[in-house]
């Protein structure tokens, strides 16, 4: 459905951020994008969203070249939920989410009742119904992130790109967002999620892509990619994958560099 081929992008000449990234994702799937800081995840999401034109390579959505589509048409198909967002003016939560309806509005029109229903649904999906009249600027970082996710949902695209959507969320809200993502993926939307949390990739991803220094280090199912060897190479640090009693990978955790074990050694006292 969404196919990116041989993407190259650099903010400055001679300093490439993406170096030949290709990606092929199926409809209704959840793709996790992992990689160290500065590996090019955010840049790749921006290129995939059509906001940033690559210097080389192409992005196709159901065969159509994303960079040839008119902006509004493109934004009806692909949405980007940024990680950070600094609004100057104190719009209400409802207004911020309503801005997701922009690509669906006719020229010079403003949102109508139909749009308001969609916005209310999106707010309910992320549990923010009671926040609709609050100024966005007065929310906590995690709540702001939920608002932006609701805006992405209200945009009703075929593909939604989430840039570290759970970075500022508590565990319960992380789960709520990812369960919502899974529900929507089952029905109509495909997701690309950049993340620093390989464990949630184990739980939710259909496909995992690991970036390193602007190139695809590995791509495949979680079982193929989320191995100790691959993740240790990706992050340049020792990583351990924990398995449950049925020998299914359940968590990815860091290891101490000196090899020592957990400090919780059962007694509460160090031996």
């Amino acid at each position: 459905m969404l196919q990116a081929e041989n993407l190259h992008y650099g903010y400055q000449p001679g300093q490439p951020v993406l170096r030949g990234v290709s990606l092929d994702m199926a409809a209704n799937s959840i793709v996790y994008l992992l990689g160290h800081n500065g590996s090019g995840k955010t840049t790749l999401l921006e290129v995939l969203s059509g906001v940033r034109q690559p210097q080389q390579g192409s992005v196709r959505l159901n065969g159509a070249d994303l960079f040839r589509l008119p902006a509004a048409q493109r934004a009806r198909r692909v949405g980007l939920v940024p990680q950070t967002h600094a609004p100057v003016f104190a719009y209400t939560v409802h207004d911020v989410v309503m801005m997701g309806r922009t690509p669906h509005l006719r020229l010079l029109a403003t949102p109508d009742r139909h749009d308001r229903v969609i916005v209310d649904e999106a707010l309910a999906l992320v549990g923010l119904e009671d926040f609709r009249h609050r100024p966005y600027t007065e929310l906590s970082g995690g709540e702001q992130q939920l608002v932006l996710i609701a805006r992405g949902i209200a945009q009703q695209t075929d593909v939604l790109l989430l840039d570290e959507p759970t970075a500022h969320l508590d565990p319960r809200n992380q789960q709520m967002v990812l369960e919502t993502v899974a529900q929507l993926a089952a029905v109509r939307v495909a997701f690309v999620i950049s993340s620093h949390n390989p464990t949630s990739a184990l739980l939710y991803a259909d496909q995992v892509v690991v970036l390193k220094a602007g190139q695809v280090l590995a791509s495949g199912t979680p079982g193929e990619v989320l191995t100790e060897e691959m993740l240790s190479r990706s992050y340049d640090m020792p990583v351990e994958v924990l398995y449950n009693e049925r020998q299914v990978a359940r968590a990815v955790v860091p290891r101490r560099v000196n090899g020592s074990d957990s400090k919780a050694n059962g007694t509460g006292f160090s031996a």
Binding site: A75, P82, D95
Partner: peptide, 16 residues
């Protein structure tokens, strides 16, 4: 409203 979010968000929301 959308423009006041900044260029990249306005672009992502389908404006030029």
């Amino acid at each position: 409203n959308v423009l006041s979010l900044g260029d990249s968000e306005a672009l992502a929301l389908g404006l030029n």
